[in-house]
């Protein structure tokens, strides 16, 4: 297990380097210049050059990249140009909000999605199956900003149960979590249902039936276990969605978070912040892939056997 894990982690190093190059260079294609935001209007070219030198923007791109990467590796994410404070502070402000929202949305879509998927698979092709899968489909086809607004109108304005916006207290999490969670639920439910149905056809299930175990017990203890492998893999692979995919919902509910920070900094050409946000997302994605692999390995005896 350990050698496999080490090898797996080492494989991430070139990926990380490649990602960092992309993240660093892509921003320089965006028209506009953060220095314009800082300079006194009507400044001389000398003042501009001095300001560029101050932020290291006068060097060649590869040199800028080298400096940036070595700083990042030492944990220094730089200083935001427009927001005028350490990027790490901005990230530290935003990240907990994103993790809370994304984590709860993930939890919601997993619990609800798996439950619905199991119920649908157990009642395969009956009306309850159709109703669940139909409902789930409709839930996933509504644009999230639209769904968010409708939820606000119903639950905040008409019923007054939850706050309209912001990030004060758990009540303010309910509607955003629901908005994101409904989209994810569809994916989880669909995969759970299909894998359950597929796993039910496997040889070992026939064997268990032959042994005289109760069908429900077989489904919930053995079939579900198998069916969850693809669910876990997909969820782990899509971890970047948890952190970044909430952008629209964060905007609709006027919530702080990594997504809004990224969009705002992108609009302001605040390169260091955008780079740091993207890097955080990329690292979360890589971590998710790794976790997916590990979980898959732990849950699937065949993979476990192949590892040693």
């Amino acid at each position: 297990m350990l050698p496999w894990l080490i090898k797996r982690i080492l494989m991430l190093v070139p990926v990380f380097l490649a990602v960092s190059v992309v993240i660093f260079s892509i921003l320089h294609f965006i028209p506009g210049d953060p220095i314009d935001n800082l300079l006194k209007i009507g400044s001389s070219p000398e003042a501009r050059a001095e300001m560029e030198a101050r932020y290291g923007l006068d060097r060649s791109l590869p040199v800028q990249y080298g400096i940036w990467l070595s700083n990042v590796l030492q944990g220094d994410l730089g200083t935001a140009i427009v927001a005028r404070r350490p990027v790490a502070d901005l990230i530290a402000q935003a990240l907990p909000h994103s993790l809370r929202l994304g984590g709860l949305a993930l939890l919601f879509s997993t619990v609800v999605g798996v439950t619905l998927g199991v119920v649908a698979a157990l009642s395969r092709d009956r009306w309850s199956d159709r109703a669940i899968m139909g409902g789930v489909l409709v839930g996933s086809t509504m644009p999230s900003f639209w769904l968010g607004l409708i939820l606000i109108l119903v639950f905040s304005v008409s019923l007054g149960w939850f706050p309209v916006s912001g990030a004060r207290g758990w009540q303010s999490l309910v509607l955003p979590v629901l908005t994101i969670g409904l989209g994810g639920t569809a994916l989880v439910a669909r995969i759970t249902r299909v894998s359950m149905i597929e796993a039910s056809g496997r040889d070992f299930v026939t064997l268990l039936h032959a042994k005289g175990l109760s069908p429900l017990r077989i489904q919930l203890r053995h079939v579900l276990r198998h069916a969850l492998i693809p669910v876990v893999t997909i969820l782990a692979l899509r971890i970047g969605w948890i952190l970044g995919g909430a952008v629209t919902v964060e905007v609709v509910f006027a919530r702080p978070g990594l997504g809004t920070l990224l969009i705002k900094s992108l609009a302001q050409h605040d390169y260091p912040v955008v780079q740091a946000c993207l890097l955080m997302l990329a690292m979360a994605v890589m971590l998710g892939t790794l976790m997916g692999d590990i979980l898959q390995a732990l849950m699937d005896p065949r993979v476990r056997a192949a590892m040693t």
Partner: peptide, 13 residues
């Protein structure tokens, strides 16, 4: 967004 702010005021947020 002005409309979000208004809804906050309306709902006592």
């Amino acid at each position: 967004e002005d409309s979000t702010a208004f809804l906050e005021l309306k709902t006592g947020g």
